[in-house]
Design a protein around this nucleic acid. Structure first.
Lengths: 252, 252
DNA sequence: GTTGACTCTCACGTAGCGGCAGGCAGGAGC
DNA sequence: GCTCCTGCCTGCCGCTACGTGAGAGTCAAC
């Protein structure tokens, strides 16, 4: 029993192009050709195709399918386990994405009368995002984090603008002190470290000296924060780190 | 506040190449360049990047992200709904794949002492596969289908070979009658139609005349089956269809 | 002999980057 | 002033699993 590409395509429910492709990559080459060059598939070819399609259904990449089928030493069960792991990871990721979308849809619904797109930026905006990363990395799911989340959730665009303005003002003075050559444990530097703590307390959560020194450590340990401060002024990350520690010690 | 690509990359947790790509496709072009041609990203660029990454997290294609962000008339909620549908479809598909893999793993475990790979072919083999499609399309989830499934599940490779041999023998005689020029309602043709029914009854499920005529109709309606019979001999699909109907009428 | 349905072989296009190559730019150290 | 190191630049090919033609030959039927 010999079949042409078109017949095989109909039988198996795939396109002719797919069969051409499988021939190209050597996954399924027909056992013969007619004198005119037409591909001729026999029953064995059909069986192989069924196997190929079976593994394809299971989400295996074509190259791996070839390996499983052609290598008599290959252990199908092992491949199945690997594939199962892979798929469950993808499945989990997809479930998270769906959950995130549902959350976004909820938010979009609730704020539709006030802020069609701006609330979106509460999640996507750079400052809150950086802050969220900061908090999550450091405390995960603590009281401070929850308090911060509660407060932040009520902030509007103007709040963020005011927050930003205050931050920038503080930043300018910090840079000035750094540029003045005053050491990190000078009164001026320590005063600005104290302001840093109060800014956080006012905008986000009650920030103790202990929490603040933890933050300071992270500013050096996590390159994302390092980059943020180093970009304002070279050396600022380390300077701020020192100033915060000095201030915390002097107040203890 | 201006940042270079590398700084932005670290801040946002993406690669420099990704930023280059976003610049190339116009999704996120830095607001300026230095005299040396270095990309300069400002705060607004960072905000846009956060938005982009947010939508990317939700699984949106980059082109659609650009549309959502750039088109002020675009309705984010509508996009969210569409994306939600899309993702749930993918999710369902993935869940099916995982279920199929788990099934395969079970089968692989249970038959490991008898048939390491051959049992696989019970699922992947062309004949059973075609038969499964046949049954599912026609009856979905009926007694006949369940009976067939039960029987088929116990067949070994030799059973399939015997089945195949009987089928081919029947096929040869069928082709002979067709070639002889005898009409489809001749006694010879009807006898072979009857054998067709008994073959099915013996191997798969109790096949009534009513069921058989249903099958015969499908042999013409579904091009996959048409292709199968036409390939054995041109005209066979229609001939068999007629013979089955004639036989069923004469036996009624 | 001519139509219409198939078939063949290139060969480019897709999404979202990864990863080279070859060549400037800018600051540090000698 | 020279060199070294790091970071930046612009191409450009590669990946998956085919889709979608283009242009040309083939096969059976009317």
């Amino acid at each position: 029993m010999a079949y042409t590409v078109g017949q095989v395509a109909k039988l198996a429910g795939v396109t002719v192009r797919t069969l051409h492709h499988y021939d190209e990559i050597g996954l399924l080459s027909p056992s013969g050709r007619t004198s005119a060059g037409y591909r001729r598939y026999d029953d064995a070819d059909l069986q192989r195709l069924q196997l190929v399609l079976y593994y394809r259904e299971l989400g295996f990449p074509l190259e791996e399918i070839a390996a499983i089928i052609d290598d008599p030493a290959a252990d199908p069960a092992a491949h199945l386990r690997r594939q199962h792991e892979l798929l469950t990871v993808r499945l989990k990721r997809l479930q998270e994405m769906v959950a995130a979308i549902e959350f976004a849809m909820e938010a979009s619904k609730m704020n539709i009368q006030l802020t069609p797109e701006e609330r979106f930026e509460v999640f996507g905006d750079v400052d809150p995002e950086e802050h969220r990363a900061e908090a999550e990395q450091r405390w995960g799911d603590t009281d401070a984090y929850r308090e911060s989340s509660r407060r932040v959730a009520r902030y509007g665009k103007e709040d963020w603008l005011r927050n930003k303005a205050e931050n920038e003002e503080w930043g300018r003075r910090m840079v000035a002190v750094l540029a003045s050559g005053a050491p990190a444990d000078s009164p001026e530097a320590m005063e600005l470290a104290e302001e840093h703590r109060q800014l956080i307390s006012r905008w986000f959560y009650e920030c103790s000296y202990e929490m603040q020194t933890g933050l300071a450590d992270m500013y050096l340990a996590d390159e994302r924060f390092t980059a943020y401060y180093e970009n304002i002024a070279p050396g600022l990350a380390g300077y701020l780190h020192e100033a915060i520690h000095a201030n915390a010690i002097s107040r203890a």
